[in-house]
């Protein structure tokens, strides 16, 4: 009896999701989403295959050839995008820089998504005191100026990749927590949840099997939209010198290194700036499209 009810429940939920061919068709129809996908995919390819794509070692410096403009050639090799202030090939550094941006963006989104999801589920499902406490924690985090928090934390702990991801995650998880909690509040009163509860389903089972699949859509949408924001935050922190320490190239770090040379060598700031802009644009376009496909109600997110 109980198994049967659950099985019916699951088929009902599965039917609610759009069919696969429809997803691809909508991607093909939505040209801006397609563009976003292409951009994001090419950045991912760039990051993954950086050692194969980069024409030179991004760390190899030659001080005598510093700050050379794009298309400059030393006789043997052409520096497509010029060199930086230590004479390192700028194209190679840009390509390698994609790694950090994506790595940080992806893991920060994953981490915040998981954590925010858990908090939202627990708060929404159990309600009462648990909800009150968790939501006040959310308020607390929201009321703290993020950059200040990041500055202070990194100044104390010292900059590194892991610290960077953790610091960025400290703030963003609350967004997920709020949205998920709101969804769960309505879901837990629905018949299929009531039914599962009436036949003795444990809290854990109800949350994981019945509520979680229904809140995944908004979580995925927020995640895709926040990927772009994470990349911007990473670049901002790197720009302030709080990112991944040198000589690892990061887009924000390249911007920061280049800012003093802005008036004499335009490429050292323009190119990483463009890289950030284009990547974030791609991520946002994909995010918009996902939102339209998965849950048109969430247009305001």
């Amino acid at each position: 009896m109980r198994e049967q009810a659950l099985a019916i429940q699951e088929t009902m939920e599965l039917e609610a999701l759009p069919e696969r061919p429809k997803v691809w068709a909508s991607l093909w129809k939505d040209k801006s989403a397609l563009l976003g996908c292409v951009i994001l995919l090419s950045v991912v390819v760039m990051a993954v295959f950086a050692p194969l794509l980069a024409p030179m070692d991004p760390q190899a410096q030659l001080l005598d050839r510093n700050l050379k403009p794009p298309m400059w050639s030393d006789g043997q090799q052409i520096y497509l995008l010029g060199t930086d202030h230590l004479g390192r090939d700028f194209l190679s550094r840009l390509i390698y820089g994609a790694r950090i941006s994506l790595l940080v963006g992806f893991f920060a989104v994953l981490l915040t998504g998981c954590f925010g999801l858990c908090v939202g589920l627990v708060a929404g499902y159990f309600g009462g005191k648990v909800d009150f406490l968790l939501m006040r924690l959310v308020d607390l985090v929201l009321s703290f100026p993020f950059i200040l928090l990041a500055l202070a934390t990194i100044a104390i702990v010292g900059p590194s990749l892991v610290v960077l991801i953790l610091v960025m995650s400290m703030r963003i998880w609350v967004i997920y927590a709020r949205v998920v909690r709101g969804e769960v509040l309505t879901l837990r009163e629905q018949e299929f949840v009531q039914a599962a509860r009436s036949i003795g389903g444990s809290h854990f089972r109800i949350i994981v099997r019945h509520i979680l699949p229904n809140v995944l859509a908004p979580v995925i949408i927020i995640a895709s939209l926040y990927l772009g924001r994470m990349i911007i935050i990473e670049a901002g922190l790197s720009f302030l010198g709080l990112g991944v320490p040198p000589p690892t190239p990061t887009w924000g770090g390249l911007l920061s290194d280049g800012k003093v040379h802005l008036y004499t060598s335009w490429w050292v700031v323009t190119l990483p700036g463009l890289a950030i802009t284009v990547t974030v644009l791609g991520a946002n376009l994909v995010g918009d499209w996902l939102r339209n496909v998965l849950d048109p109600r969430l247009k305001s997110v």
Binding site: Q59, A60, Q61, L63, H85, L86, P246, P247, D257
Partner: peptide
């Protein structure tokens, strides 16, 4: 910082 990065190189 720039000089030290150069020296490290």
């Amino acid at each position: 910082k720039e000089a030290l990065e150069g020296i490290a190189g």
